[in-house]
Simulated assay, not measured.
Amino acid sequence: MSRLTAYTFEETLEKNQECLKKQKEAVKYRLKKLAARQSEITKKSSVIRESIIRKYQEIQTVLDEDLRMTLSYLEMEERAAVSALDGLMEKNCSLIQEIEQDLARLTVAMDQADTQTDTMSFFSYSEHQDMEAVDKVIDLLNKTDPSRVNLDEAKAEQIISLTNNMLLLICSQTPLFKKLIKSYSSEVSLDPGTAHPKLIISPEGDSATYTDTWQELPDLPDRFDTTLNVISLQGFSFGRHYWEIDVTGKTYWELGVTYPTIPRKGTNEDCWLGRGDESWCVEFFDGEYTAWHGGVPHQLPFTKRFCRIGVLCSFPAGLVTFLEADNMTPLFSFCAGTFSDCLHLALCPGHDHNGTNAKPIVICNAPSHTSDL
């Protein structure tokens, strides 16, 4: 090798070495940026969480103080009414004592009566006393009528009505999580060109129903020919998106999200939702819920047959979450990392199982409020 050739070769190596060093530094710098971003997100999340906690605590403080004031007013009125009744009862007790004393005197007088004249004089006196006693009793009974002492029941009814209105208002605003998730609702329609020939897709593209009859449909490249799957016409590659699927009356179903690259032909297990790396799903079968991705099952601790399932995918967070939509109960979340392709909603209504699973699987489209936040 000539000196010139050796020099050129050495120069090339040095250039390659310098290039690799620069690439290494670029990757290290990116790694540093990623770590900083991770720390920033953790701190920001902590600040948001603490702020939310404080707001809930402030709400609780306001409610507790309002409850204290309301109960204090009611207790004050109760004490006043009880005190008034105590005073009236005391007057009645005093009159009873006076009457008892008069009865005792009359009894003694009757025992000591020796002559008719004295007796007549006694009865004359007694009748006079009786009239006074009767008048006194009537006057007292009029003044101590229990119905004259009342709680402010009209005000109490108003308080109950106001608290009920407050409850209805709070219920209409909670769970806040539900409002947040629904703000990501995106309209989708099923692509009949991807549906297995034993699936009937509604004209609106919002439902899939199993039929035992194999429909004569074009054997399109995108059509599933073994698994009873259908995916949405729309795909999403950024932002956050949420859908709700009605599974009322069904005993078997699968639903989730998938890349468009999911295998569609043959008996390959990857054609099933969640069995390959291209899709994520939750399955309900034989009374049990299972979350699937990459062929790995995650048994879920739920036994209730849910009517509506929510599916949330977040591209910024790399998240796929499944929820029981009525109460927003989390079922399972996949931290998928960075998605490598766009995502489609994917459904499998399952076989009819001798009529026990004949109901359609339905997408409950909501007005589109897709957010990129």
Rank of each mutant, 00 (worst) to 15 (best):
279 S>H: 01
274 G>V: 00
274 G>C: 03
252 Y>K: 11
228 L>C: 10
250 K>Q: 12
273 L>K: 00
218 P>H: 06
258 T>N: 09
245 I>M: 03
208 A>D: 03
253 W>L: 03
283 E>D: 03
209 T>S: 10
208 A>V: 05
247 V>A: 09
259 Y>Q: 06
272 W>N: 11
280 W>E: 03
240 R>N: 13
273 L>H: 03
266 G>R: 10
208 A>M: 08
279 S>R: 02
225 D>N: 15
250 K>T: 02
280 W>M: 06
276 G>A: 05
226 T>S: 13
222 D>K: 14
253 W>P: 01
272 W>I: 10
255 L>Y: 04
258 T>Y: 03
205 G>F: 11
229 N>H: 07
205 G>R: 08
272 W>M: 12
208 A>R: 05
252 Y>C: 11
241 H>A: 13
239 G>Q: 07
267 T>S: 12
240 R>D: 04
234 Q>F: 06
257 V>D: 02
281 C>P: 01
268 N>S: 12
208 A>L: 07
222 D>E: 15
245 I>Q: 00
265 K>C: 05
245 I>N: 02
280 W>D: 05
258 T>I: 04
235 G>T: 03
269 E>Y: 12
230 V>P: 02
219 D>M: 12
232 S>C: 07
224 F>L: 05
276 G>I: 02
231 I>K: 04
211 T>I: 08
238 F>E: 15
240 R>G: 06
241 H>P: 02
210 Y>L: 06
260 P>A: 01
233 L>T: 15
247 V>R: 07
216 E>K: 09
237 S>L: 10
280 W>F: 11
252 Y>A: 13
237 S>M: 13
236 F>S: 03
231 I>D: 02
241 H>C: 13
241 H>S: 14
284 F>I: 09
263 P>H: 03
223 R>W: 09
218 P>S: 10
240 R>C: 15
221 P>S: 14
278 E>G: 06
224 F>D: 00
253 W>I: 04
274 G>F: 00
272 W>L: 13
221 P>N: 14
206 D>Y: 05
275 R>G: 00
274 G>L: 00
